[in-house]
């Protein structure tokens, strides 16, 4: 088997490794759903996937293209509603087990996300879809993984709009604002993996992929970032790649060309 891999493949595996057995995984579509499926088939067989639309533990025989795709409704434990799905994240018994996977147009050093617009809010250069459930998830869920393309225009000093709260301005600002601990705790990009310092709330480089260096990652980051703790990432194993390719997305609908 080909043991080389695409950026999407290593990103999927890095996120999947973060999911623990027994986690309740909040998923969107695309690569985040693939990471949730990969975790379930590789390292977290008892994890449960759910969607903001209210489907819990869907079978996912075919890859859904939207969180309202009828493919998520088949063989679910329950099909409920939006208010119920968001309650699951806040429930004081189930909420602590939830891990979420998000994406964004911009992220700052504190893990705050923008999915609303580039430019002025009222006359934006680019308008995006908006929060959807993103703000709710970042507000409620103790651990969130953010998938990003690693570019300076996406890793910015100041967000054009703060849609979803991370550590806000750091140093305990999140708790001061009234939020419970949570928000983005892991950032997975095409170059490496970032985490957040517990005291300052600032992003630091945790792992860099084969073929990248901390310096290269800093060049693609629009703010200063601590790289002193960075270690080389363990690349995807042949076993992980085999399961991802053969059991999760055999048609490469999300993985794209090999």
């Amino acid at each position: 088997m080909d043991t080389s891999y695409t950026p999407k493949e290593i990103m999927t595996i890095m996120a999947a490794r973060e999911i623990k057995n027994g986690d309740i995984v909040f998923s969107g579509t695309g690569i985040s759903m693939l990471a949730a499926m990969a975790a379930k088939k590789i390292n977290a067989p008892d994890s449960v996937i759910f969607f903001e639309t209210g489907a819990m533990d869907s079978l996912l025989e075919e890859i859904p293209f939207a969180v309202a795709d009828p493919r998520i409704m088949y063989w679910a434990a329950a099909n409920s509603s939006l208010t119920d799905a968001f309650a699951t994240m806040q429930n004081r018994i189930t909420g602590d087990r939830v891990i979420a996977i998000l994406g964004a147009a911009q992220i700052d050093r504190y893990g705050n996300l923008n999915t609303t617009c580039i430019g002025d809010y009222f006359s934006p250069d680019i308008r995006f879809s908006g929060s959807g459930g993103g703000c709710d998830v970042a507000s409620f869920v103790p651990r969130c993984i953010a998938f990003m393309q690693h570019e300076t225009r996406k890793f910015v000093k100041h967000l054009d709009y703060l849609t979803s709260p991370g550590q806000l301005t750091g140093n305990g600002a999140r708790e001061k604002a009234g939020l419970r601990p949570g928000g983005v705790s892991l950032v997975v990009t095409n170059l490496g993996v970032m985490r957040f310092a517990t005291d300052t709330g600032q992003m630091y480089l945790d792992q860099y992929y084969p073929g990248t260096t901390p310096g290269m990652i800093l060049e693609n980051t629009g703010f200063d970032m601590d790289v002193s703790r960075a270690a080389p990432a363990d690349p995807p194993t042949p076993a992980e790649l085999k399961i991802l390719r053969e059991n999760c997305d055999p048609q490469r609908l999300i993985l794209g060309p090999a």
């Binding site: 604002a177 939020l179 419970r180």
Partner: peptide, 24 residues
């Protein structure tokens, strides 16, 4: 969703922790 629910319940508002600290 909560805004519709509040309308359905006949209460003026409902509380949530969502969005604290956000530009929303």
């Amino acid at each position: 969703s909560l805004r519709f629910m509040a309308g359905a319940m006949g209460v003026p508002f409902l509380p949530t922790l969502s969005g604290l600290g956000s530009d929303m």
